[in-house]
Design a binder for these strands. Structure first.
Lengths: 115, 115
DNA sequence: TTAATAAATAAGCATATACTTATATACTAA
DNA sequence: TTAGTATATAAGTATATGCTTATTTATTAA
């Protein structure tokens, strides 16, 4: 497979979004699956509007996609996006965020995606 | 070689610095060698103080190092830094900036490092 | 010493960013 | 319909950011 070179401007825009602890954690959380907003709120211990605003930025940039399921909206990585290779590489080099979700699960706060 | 996992906070800080077109270009320019401040000024067509301020941020974060040679100060990638793997991966995925230096060279504006 | 050049720093300012609280919208279930 | 829950959006605000112009520092060379 030929290597895709990402435009500098687009790369900078994506990296700026990655350059925030909250958003980087959000992306780490959806690395292997989808999460709904209330899960981010629980894990990150931040207000719901604040989380929603970060998610909007990530979605506007095309880094994540959303799927509604009833009352819940699930977010996941958009692997089709031009800059996904950058996101992927970065996520491989930071600590796994999965344990934060398993902690949620133990507390019974994890939303069942197929509910 | 074991993979190094970079702390989330530190990764976010580095990514924030990468998330600016000017700084990303500067890093691209020093990917394969060193450049002095006036070269950045020429290539990027920006004011000298503005370039210096970007360089200071990159240096404060440890992403680049400097070397004085007479009147000139040469900047280069700091490959010893914890987050260098991230920087390296990102630089591999954006367009090469080398041609901008060869254009300088043709115009006779490139500083000879060993002058 | 003096003038010239390279680079750093300081101060000021307009805009961007990341929160906050309040409210609106969308969906579910009684 | 009505009440409850999940999420989005709006508006306000404090701080951060990236430029500008002016000045300072460091080095070179006359």
């Amino acid at each position: 497979m030929e290597k895709t070179i990402i435009e500098l401007e687009q790369a900078a825009h994506t990296l700026k979004l990655l350059g925030d602890k909250t958003r980087l954690t959000i992306l780490g959380l959806v690395k292997d699956g989808e999460c709904c907003v209330c899960e981010f709120v629980e894990v990150l211990q931040m207000s719901q509007p604040s989380i929603s605003q970060h998610l909007r930025k990530l979605r506007d940039a095309g880094l994540v996609k959303e799927r509604r399921n009833g009352q819940w909206i699930f977010y996941s990585l958009n692997k089709e996006h031009d800059t996904y290779p950058i996101v992927q590489q970065v996520l491989e080099q930071i600590p796994d965020q999965k344990e934060k979700l398993t902690a949620l699960e133990k507390a019974g706060l994890r939303i069942q995606c197929d509910s």
